[in-house]
């Protein structure tokens, strides 16, 4: 217990100072959420690279939570879906169902190039399409995988903080 306390004290604050609030337009419905965005992540067919960086974005260094975004367990509790990867034929229906389970107003963020335009997986036989082809997308985040800074920026577009 003491050693943990020492470790905590020695480490101090890990979170880096927040970058300035990103410019650019916010989705209209995001304003309704008033600085609190609960997020349900859906892996629709990613290579799990984007998951690593989403993890980083919510890690202590980037600390996505400080802007009012939080990962939650159930889509019923969520305001936004964070979808990664191309949508495979097997995940198209689960993704639709997840979207349906979210109470309005709801937003969808497509994370990474696969989610935006299928990336290198375009044309594969198991791919149903990009996220936009299955559910409406409000925010897109570029990169393969996007850097955590980009993900945080995307989240801040939702929370406005």
């Amino acid at each position: 217990m003491l050693s943990l306390w020492r470790k905590i004290r020695r480490t101090g604050r890990v979170a880096e100072p927040p970058p300035p609030l990103p410019e650019g337009e916010r989705p209209e419905r995001a304003a309704l959420l008033g600085g609190s965005v609960q997020i349900r992540h859906v892996d629709a067919g990613s290579c799990n690279g984007c998951e690593i960086e989403i993890g980083s974005a919510f890690g202590p260094v980037h600390d996505g939570e400080r802007y009012g975004a939080r990962l939650v367990a159930s889509p019923r509790h969520a305001d936004a879906l964070l979808v990664t990867g191309v949508v495979t034929r097997n995940m198209a229906e689960p993704l639709r169902r997840t979207f349906d389970a979210v109470p309005a107003p709801k937003l969808v963020v497509a994370v990474g190039d696969c989610a935006r335009n299928c990336g290198v997986f375009a044309g594969a036989y198991g791919v149903a399409g990009a996220v936009r082809d299955v559910v409406p997308v409000d925010v897109e985040i570029h990169g393969c995988p996007p850097r955590p800074e980009a993900i945080v920026e995307g989240l801040r577009k939702l929370t406005g903080r």
């Binding site: 019923r76 993704l95 169902r97 349906d100 389970a101 109470p103």
Partner: peptide, 14 residues
């Protein structure tokens, strides 16, 4: 003022 919506049970998409 939003209508209550009936939805399927959350089945983890399964």
């Amino acid at each position: 003022r939003r209508a209550r919506r009936e939805a399927r049970l959350w089945d983890c998409g399964g």
